[in-house]
């Protein structure tokens, strides 16, 4: 059963499917939070989703993670229809929100065992992954301490280890560097870069434009639930018409223009 499933999605993944394809995705709470949102992220891309507060970044990713049913539209992850077949989609996806989803009364090793169990990772492989992640993230010494005593940064790292232990093909991170100190932030950035080089697809939302500028191969700017600009940093520069403007300038121009137009 397990093998069959793996075969199925490796076949799908090896095809020319997009890592993530959103078609006309819409979520209406009282007013539209995400409005006819179209997005295609290619496999192996490091995609940064930028936008002002309340632009719909987190709502979008929560829908992709299966936490929120969309009002309308389609979500496809490596060719799997995430709305029709959520379990298969979740099997290759990881979601890391800005507030780490941890269990206070479990220690990092137990947490990782739990996550690996849920995603059906073969135990020997999970053990090796856990050991590596705990070492890389500097958690090895703390592996038998319960998470309740951890600082925010430590918790974020444990959650990240949990997101990576099942080797997701698509990793979505919501503000992954919020509240982390410089040293930890660098560790995390390095780890993410390494994952992308290893073939994973990463989508992250961030307020910190510098992070997007440095890490992302492609950037999308979202405002009022819609994608208003997309491209590499250079393409964006050309679009905004000034060659040496920073991402911040472009971001402010683009989101400001939209507001004025509306």
């Amino acid at each position: 059963m397990q093998d069959g499933v793996e075969d199925k999605f490796s076949r799908q993944a090896n095809g020319d499917h997009a890592a993530l394809r959103l078609g006309g995705l819409t979520k209406i709470f009282n007013k539209p939070a995400v409005n006819n949102f179209n997005l295609t992220v290619r496999p192996g891309e490091f995609y940064a989703l930028l936008g002002p507060n309340g632009a719909g970044k987190t709502t979008t990713l929560r829908m992709v993670a299966g936490l929120l049913p969309p009002t309308s539209g389609s979500i496809e992850i490596f060719g799997i229809d995430a709305l029709r077949n959520p379990i298969e989609a979740k099997r290759i996806t990881a979601w890391l929100p800005d507030e780490p989803m941890l269990y206070d009364k479990l220690d990092p090793v137990e947490y990782l065992e739990f996550v690996a169990g849920l995603w059906g990772v073969e135990p020997r492989r999970a053990e090796a992954n856990a050991e590596e992640l705990l070492n890389v993230l500097g958690l090895w010494e703390h592996r038998n301490e319960r998470c309740e005593g951890f600082s925010r940064g430590m918790k974020q790292k444990v959650a990240l280890a949990g997101a990576l232990i099942h080797e997701p093909k698509l990793l979505m991170l919501d503000e992954p560097l919020t509240g982390l100190d410089a040293a930890i932030a660098r560790q995390v950035k390095e780890l993410l870069t390494r994952r992308v080089n290893g073939g994973a697809t990463i989508i992250l939302t961030t307020h910190i434009l510098e992070v997007a500028e440095r890490l992302a191969s492609r950037i999308g700017i979202i405002n009022k639930g819609q994608l208003i600009a997309e491209g590499t940093l250079d393409e964006m520069r050309q679009k905004s018409g000034s060659k040496d403007s920073s991402l911040e300038d472009m971001f402010l121009t683009l989101t400001g223009v939209m507001e004025n137009a509306a």
Partner: peptide, 25 residues
Amino acid sequence: ATPARQTSNKPLRFRKGAGRALRLK
């Protein structure tokens, strides 16, 4: 602050399966 349990030097040993993982948790 939580007590640090004695950090064991045993290698990591995970058990298999979602059901077991859920119950154990």
